[in-house]
């Protein structure tokens, strides 16, 4: 997989197929990007599991924090990593010890580790780097268009108005993949502060 620009069909396939998502580095602070994404994905019907050893015993929007991937104790479809690039490898290595393996490992906007990606891909795991699943879900469903964002999709179909807890159709006509140049540059010198 070329990790500079993903075809929409690749992202669409992932978001249409995964059901459970473990978010590593989920923050209970409501201004952190991980909190935004956690809340949105839960509202769109994903089974969300917050992973953060610093908050075990508390919960995030009703879901109990879990200390690590190995402590989840049930199969998960996708791991969404909210850590900076230099902390990705250990998370991926831990993910590779899970049985069954996750189907997808997703690294947040600004995070990229090509060696970790190659390791995961070598055992058949799909990898997305330097993207936000909330933004991609909002883009492919065109819900993000409310904010003037170019969804790079078209549709002549009437879609129902989005309400809370509703899964949205991501199957719109795509107008081509995207580029991540700016975020890639940002990824090189970012420090994590969740």
């Amino acid at each position: 997989m070329n990790h500079d620009a993903y075809p929409d069909n690749y992202i669409r396939g992932i978001l249409n197929s995964v059901k459970s998502i473990a978010m590593v580095g989920a923050s209970p602070q409501n201004v952190r990007p991980s909190y935004f994404a956690f809340k949105y994905l839960a509202q769109r019907g994903y089974d969300m599991i917050p992973i953060n050893p610093g908050h075990v015993g508390k919960d995030l929007l009703g879901k109990p924090f879990v200390a690590s991937l190995s402590d989840i104790g049930r199969p998960i479809d996708m791991i969404d990593i909210f850590r900076n690039s230099s902390h990705i490898m250990p998370v991926v290595e831990e993910a590779l010890t899970l049985d069954p393996l996750p189907k997808v490992i997703w690294m947040q906007l600004g995070a990229r580790d090509d060696a970790a990606a190659a390791k995961a891909e070598s055992v058949g795991i799909k990898v997305v780097m330097n993207r936000c699943p909330k933004i991609e879900y909002g883009r492919l469903s065109s819900e993000i268009s409310w904010m003037g964002v170019n969804s790079r999709t078209l549709s002549s179909k009437r879609a129902p108005a989005p309400t809370q807890g509703m899964r949205l159709s991501l199957n719109r006509m795509s107008v081509g993949g995207g580029d991540t140049a700016a975020s890639d540059r940002a990824a090189k010198n970012k420090t994590e502060q969740s």
Partner: peptide, 18 residues
Amino acid sequence: MSDRLPGFSTLAVHAGAQ
């Protein structure tokens, strides 16, 4: 769902609207 690039005139009519 194929990823293809519609032309400028198609975007001028459709982009953003449904």
